[in-house]
Design a binder for these strands. Sequence first.
DNA 1: CATGTTTAATTGACTCGTCAATCAACAAAC
DNA 2: GTTTGTTGATTGACGAGTCAATTAAACATG
Lengths: 195, 195
Amino acid sequence: MPKQGMEPIRRTALVEATIHEIGARGTLDVTVSQIAKRAGMSSALAHHYFGSKEQIFAAAMRHILTLYGAEVRGALAMAKSPRQRIEAVVRASFAPAQFRPETVAAWLNFYVQAQKSPAARRLLHVYQTRLRSNLLFAFRQLAGPQALTLTRGMAAMIDGLYIRQALRAEPLDPDAAIDVLLAYLDTSLGQKAKT
Amino acid sequence: MPKQGMEPIRRTALVEATIHEIGARGTLDVTVSQIAKRAGMSSALAHHYFGSKEQIFAAAMRHILTLYGAEVRGALAMAKSPRQRIEAVVRASFAPAQFRPETVAAWLNFYVQAQKSPAARRLLHVYQTRLRSNLLFAFRQLAGPQALTLTRGMAAMIDGLYIRQALRAEPLDPDAAIDVLLAYLDTSLGQKAKT
DNA sequence: CATGTTTAATTGACTCGTCAATCAACAAAC
DNA sequence: GTTTGTTGATTGACGAGTCAATTAAACATG
């Protein structure tokens, strides 16, 4: 069977299987065998390519963060005004790809993973910092001294809406979530320039 | 050694040990032995009183939710106006007892637990619903039609600020968190009656 | 109040299952 | 015939839950 050049294929298959499996089970308690099975291979092969379960998780996390980063960057590229930059971050955060149940469940579980694994914590920290500074920069131009408070509030609200989705309690659709956030944005800025 | 009436003592010791152990390790991956050891007894005894690990977790969760519920009810009792009722919920949510790192870490992990355990999900759901309806009721009197959006925003923000604390990323002290929330409240209500 | 009996509390040792990780061996492709 | 892909079987560790046996308090009774 062995064709050559399987490695990248296997790796991505495993990463995606990991995210789906975590999403489906709602837990980090997924076995390498489960992941491997979903990816259509033996668990031994998974170990062969990744070395350890923790490295599989790390790769899955990197994948999610990369996708999210790309989504944000894409949205940001088209934004002209500070107001648009904030809106871009919000919309990117709730884009269909980011708000799929498996993805969100995976996020929640990676939050937990970050509590034990320093590597996971670092990864998460990089992205959170980047996101926050995007918001802060824009808010500074719009609201001066209140910028820090507004940034904190908005970042918290994004996370909170994610959690709700993960818990499937009061499952808001993306548009409703975006509405909540934009309402916050607008009233905070006192209905200034809705450009 | 056997004195009588040990049961309630052992049970509460186990519940508290569970919360501390989860907080300390940052994971639901705590063994019954670890919990029992911290509570100063053998793992066999823990099983004797609770039957299973899941029931220990459920009891710990109930404990946390009960404390939180009591805190909210206490704060709510003194509130006279709708504005004060919202503020009461906010302040109760970030009261020192609720915002201790172990407690917050335990919360996060119970969110995860709720994904697999229907019992945990039910417990969480009851409290979340109660909380939300407290907010919604007050917001209706203050903001009429926007009440639903505001409630969603505020509930999300509370959860999000909790997460931040759990992750120890940008660790806000309780007062800062309350400031963020009250700023949201005030601007949303357009600086009406700050009573 | 001494003594025998029940009973709650308690644990060490054990079972059984599960899972991450390893390894030896085999199968194409080159 | 060497490299790359692949797996079944195995190892070793660990953890939930059980159980039989031990302790000493509580209690009864003459």
